[in-house]
């Protein structure tokens, strides 16, 4: 049993390494493009709403805390507490996605979608290209992150269902632990995304 637990945990860490690399590519691409269009990136990031970004950061940090508490409760066979903490975590994740939805629709409304949809600046404007590239990375990075949050919600719901059924206890709570690890990495990525996108310049 312990061997299975160790193996699963190792497998999860390896999977998380692939997640870091997945985002790593976009971070590197962002950095290189910022080197190429420094002024434009500075200008573009003013369109992002720092208050909403900061709010989402706090929400995710709090959800990480409730996730830790869920794992902790599961490891001590406290089914009720586990259920409550999981529900709070799921609600936080949904709140994050709702805020993200309002941010996105505002940007789309302003014509800030990248590439061929970029209408905020005239295509003759010398700053237009760099601004468009910024939003190319913005939507790719936050979109991929948002997808991970969404996947997290699905997995957390499944976990909740199994917890309600009483499947986990101090002797066996591997899935709770693994989902916890996943959830922390998704939070951690946002901790890097927020300053990079919202606070630069």
């Amino acid at each position: 049993m312990q061997q299975q637990f160790d193996a699963s945990k190792l497998g999860m860490w390896l999977f998380l390494a692939t997640e870091i690399l997945l985002f790593g590519v976009l971070f590197v691409g962002f950095g290189l493009s910022q080197g190429r269009w420094p002024e434009e990136f500075k200008q573009a990031h003013h369109h992002l709403d720092r208050v909403l970004g900061a709010f989402n950061t706090v929400v995710l940090l709090f959800s990480s805390f409730t996730m830790v508490m869920a794992v902790n409760s599961a490891s001590r066979s406290k089914r009720k507490a586990t259920i409550n903490y999981l529900i709070v975590t799921i609600l936080c994740a949904i709140a994050f996605l709702v805020v993200k939805y309002f941010e996105y629709s505002h940007k789309i409304h302003e014509g800030l979608l990248p590439g061929q949809y970029f209408t905020y600046l005239a295509s003759t404007d010398p700053m237009a290209k760099g601004n468009s590239v910024f939003f190319g990375f913005y939507f790719m990075m936050t979109g991929l992150h948002g997808f991970h949050i969404f996947a997290g919600v699905v997995v957390l719901c499944l976990l909740l269902k199994e917890t309600i059924k009483g499947k986990y206890n101090a002797a066996y709570y591997t899935p709770v632990d693994l989902v916890g690890l996943y959830w922390h990495i998704v939070d951690l990525i946002w901790i890097y995304l927020f300053p990079l996108l919202y606070l630069i310049g």
């Binding site: 390896l14 390494a17 997640e19 690399l21 997945l22 990248p114 590439g115 237009a128 760099g130 790719m140």
Partner: peptide
């Protein structure tokens, strides 16, 4: 484990480029 995610996201970027022309790999769009 360490290299495959990189090509994965790159091919996704390529697909998005083809579908919506976001311009990350297109010099004419910066």
């Amino acid at each position: 484990v360490l290299a495959t995610p990189v090509v994965g996201i790159t091919l996704v970027l390529l697909t998005i480029e083809r579908a919506w022309g976001i311009g990350v790999f297109d010099a004419s769009k910066g």
